[in-house]
Design a protein around this nucleic acid. Structure first.
Length: 152
DNA sequence: GCCAACGTTGGC
DNA sequence: GCCAACGTTGGC
Protein backbone atom coordinates (compact mmCIF):
# COMPACT_ATOMS: atom_id res chain seq x y z
CA UNK A 1 0.00 0.00 0.00
CA UNK A 2 1.14 3.51 -0.80
CA UNK A 3 0.99 6.68 1.22
CA UNK A 4 0.35 10.15 -0.12
CA UNK A 5 0.01 13.77 0.81
CA UNK A 6 -2.64 15.77 -0.99
CA UNK A 7 -3.04 19.52 -0.75
CA UNK A 8 -6.22 21.51 -0.76
CA UNK A 9 -6.95 25.12 -0.08
CA UNK A 10 -9.41 24.96 2.79
CA UNK A 11 -11.38 27.89 1.42
CA UNK A 12 -11.98 25.71 -1.60
CA UNK A 13 -12.39 22.38 0.08
CA UNK A 14 -11.34 21.60 3.65
CA UNK A 15 -11.10 18.42 5.65
CA UNK A 16 -14.25 19.49 7.43
CA UNK A 17 -16.02 19.59 4.07
CA UNK A 18 -14.81 16.06 3.44
CA UNK A 19 -15.94 14.93 6.87
CA UNK A 20 -19.35 16.47 6.35
CA UNK A 21 -19.82 14.28 3.29
CA UNK A 22 -19.06 11.08 5.13
CA UNK A 23 -19.93 8.28 4.41
CA UNK A 24 -20.24 9.67 0.92
CA UNK A 25 -17.00 10.01 -0.98
CA UNK A 26 -15.49 12.92 -2.86
CA UNK A 27 -14.11 12.90 -6.40
CA UNK A 28 -10.75 14.65 -6.24
CA UNK A 29 -11.20 16.70 -9.38
CA UNK A 30 -9.23 19.58 -10.78
CA UNK A 31 -5.71 18.15 -10.78
CA UNK A 32 -4.13 19.86 -13.79
CA UNK A 33 -0.49 19.01 -13.46
CA UNK A 34 1.05 16.16 -15.41
CA UNK A 35 3.33 14.89 -12.69
CA UNK A 36 0.48 14.79 -10.22
CA UNK A 37 -1.83 13.25 -12.79
CA UNK A 38 0.62 10.49 -13.58
CA UNK A 39 1.04 9.54 -9.95
CA UNK A 40 -2.68 9.60 -9.43
CA UNK A 41 -3.42 7.58 -12.55
CA UNK A 42 -0.57 5.08 -12.40
CA UNK A 43 0.25 4.60 -8.75
CA UNK A 44 -2.71 5.43 -6.54
CA UNK A 45 -4.52 2.29 -5.50
CA UNK A 46 -7.67 1.58 -3.66
CA UNK A 47 -6.89 1.39 0.03
CA UNK A 48 -3.97 3.80 -0.14
CA UNK A 49 -3.91 6.40 2.61
CA UNK A 50 -3.27 10.11 2.20
CA UNK A 51 -2.59 13.00 4.49
CA UNK A 52 -4.94 15.92 3.94
CA UNK A 53 -2.88 19.11 3.82
CA UNK A 54 -4.30 22.61 4.07
CA UNK A 55 -2.38 24.95 1.79
CA UNK A 56 -2.40 28.64 1.07
CA UNK A 57 -4.18 29.59 4.25
CA UNK A 58 -3.59 30.90 7.73
CA UNK A 59 -2.92 27.55 9.38
CA UNK A 60 -1.02 25.52 6.84
CA UNK A 61 -0.30 21.94 7.67
CA UNK A 62 -1.43 18.35 7.83
CA UNK A 63 -4.88 18.14 9.33
CA UNK A 64 -6.09 14.60 8.78
CA UNK A 65 -6.19 11.36 6.87
CA UNK A 66 -8.25 10.16 3.96
CA UNK A 67 -8.44 6.92 2.06
CA UNK A 68 -8.35 6.31 -1.68
CA UNK A 69 -11.57 4.42 -2.34
CA UNK A 70 -11.75 4.48 -6.12
CA UNK A 71 -8.87 4.29 -8.58
CA UNK A 72 -8.40 6.79 -11.34
CA UNK A 73 -11.05 7.54 -13.91
CA UNK A 74 -11.51 10.50 -16.26
CA UNK A 75 -12.00 13.87 -14.59
CA UNK A 76 -15.27 14.85 -16.23
CA UNK A 77 -14.99 18.42 -14.96
CA UNK A 78 -12.40 18.89 -17.73
CA UNK A 79 -15.25 18.57 -20.27
CA UNK A 80 -17.50 21.16 -18.69
CA UNK A 81 -17.00 24.38 -20.62
CA UNK A 82 -18.88 26.31 -17.95
CA UNK A 83 -16.73 25.06 -15.09
CA UNK A 84 -13.39 26.45 -13.98
CA UNK A 85 -11.62 23.11 -14.53
CA UNK A 86 -12.42 23.06 -18.24
CA UNK A 87 -9.72 21.98 -20.66
CA UNK A 88 -10.72 22.04 -24.34
CA UNK A 89 -7.98 19.54 -25.13
CA UNK A 90 -9.56 16.89 -22.93
CA UNK A 91 -12.35 14.90 -24.51
CA UNK A 92 -14.49 11.94 -23.53
CA UNK A 93 -12.81 9.90 -26.27
CA UNK A 94 -9.36 10.95 -25.17
CA UNK A 95 -9.42 12.23 -21.61
CA UNK A 96 -6.39 14.18 -20.51
CA UNK A 97 -7.09 14.46 -16.79
CA UNK A 98 -7.98 11.90 -14.17
CA UNK A 99 -9.21 11.79 -10.63
CA UNK A 100 -9.69 9.36 -7.78
CA UNK A 101 -12.37 9.19 -5.12
CA UNK A 102 -11.41 9.74 -1.49
CA UNK A 103 -13.16 9.16 1.76
CA UNK A 104 -12.75 10.85 5.13
CA UNK A 105 -10.95 8.78 7.66
CA UNK A 106 -10.08 11.01 10.59
CA UNK A 107 -8.62 14.29 11.75
CA UNK A 108 -5.21 14.22 13.33
CA UNK A 109 -5.35 14.97 17.04
CA UNK A 110 -3.68 18.27 16.21
CA UNK A 111 -2.63 20.25 13.18
CA UNK A 112 0.99 19.59 12.29
CA UNK A 113 2.13 22.82 10.73
CA UNK A 114 4.40 23.23 7.76
CA UNK A 115 6.93 25.05 9.89
CA UNK A 116 7.03 22.14 12.31
CA UNK A 117 7.34 19.58 9.52
CA UNK A 118 10.33 21.49 8.21
CA UNK A 119 12.15 21.09 11.47
CA UNK A 120 12.47 17.28 11.40
CA UNK A 121 15.46 15.75 9.68
CA UNK A 122 13.35 12.60 9.26
CA UNK A 123 11.20 14.54 6.80
CA UNK A 124 13.91 16.34 4.88
CA UNK A 125 13.23 14.30 1.74
CA UNK A 126 9.51 14.97 1.75
CA UNK A 127 8.83 17.08 -1.36
CA UNK A 128 6.51 19.29 0.66
CA UNK A 129 9.35 20.82 2.66
CA UNK A 130 11.67 21.31 -0.28
CA UNK A 131 12.23 24.72 -1.71
CA UNK A 132 10.01 25.75 -4.55
CA UNK A 133 7.81 22.69 -4.25
CA UNK A 134 4.49 23.13 -5.98
CA UNK A 135 3.24 19.59 -6.32
CA UNK A 136 -0.35 19.32 -5.21
CA UNK A 137 -0.01 15.62 -4.58
CA UNK A 138 3.06 13.68 -3.58
CA UNK A 139 4.18 10.30 -2.32
CA UNK A 140 5.03 9.83 1.34
CA UNK A 141 7.43 7.08 2.34
CA UNK A 142 6.12 4.62 4.91
CA UNK A 143 8.86 5.70 7.31
CA UNK A 144 7.76 9.32 6.90
CA UNK A 145 4.13 8.34 7.34
CA UNK A 146 4.84 6.52 10.56
CA UNK A 147 7.06 9.29 11.83
CA UNK A 148 4.35 11.88 11.32
CA UNK A 149 1.82 9.70 13.11
CA UNK A 150 4.27 9.28 15.96
CA UNK A 151 4.45 13.03 16.59
CA UNK A 152 0.72 13.61 16.24
C1' DG B 1 -0.55 41.58 -1.52
C1' DC B 2 4.00 40.27 -3.02
C1' DC B 3 6.90 37.51 -5.44
C1' DA B 4 9.94 33.26 -6.22
C1' DA B 5 9.58 29.06 -8.39
C1' DC B 6 8.27 26.64 -11.98
C1' DG B 7 5.06 24.68 -15.59
C1' DT B 8 3.03 25.82 -20.05
C1' DT B 9 2.49 28.19 -24.34
C1' DG B 10 3.64 29.77 -28.68
C1' DG B 11 6.65 32.31 -31.94
C1' DC B 12 10.56 31.53 -34.41
C1' DG C 1 13.62 22.33 -30.36
C1' DC C 2 14.73 26.67 -28.01
C1' DC C 3 13.39 30.02 -24.98
C1' DA C 4 10.90 34.36 -23.65
C1' DA C 5 6.57 35.53 -22.03
C1' DC C 6 3.03 34.40 -19.32
C1' DG C 7 0.09 32.17 -15.79
C1' DT C 8 -0.29 29.68 -11.52
C1' DT C 9 0.99 27.98 -7.07
C1' DG C 10 1.55 28.78 -2.59
C1' DG C 11 4.62 30.44 1.23
C1' DC C 12 5.56 34.55 3.46
Amino acid sequence: MNYWLIKSEPEDFSIDDLKALFPRTEPWDGVRNYQARNMMRDQMRMGDMAFFYHSNCKEMGIVGIMEIVRESYPDYTSWDSDGNHFDPKSTEENPRWFMVDVNYQRHLSRLISLSELKRYSQLSELPLVKRGNRLSLMPVQSTEWEFILSIE
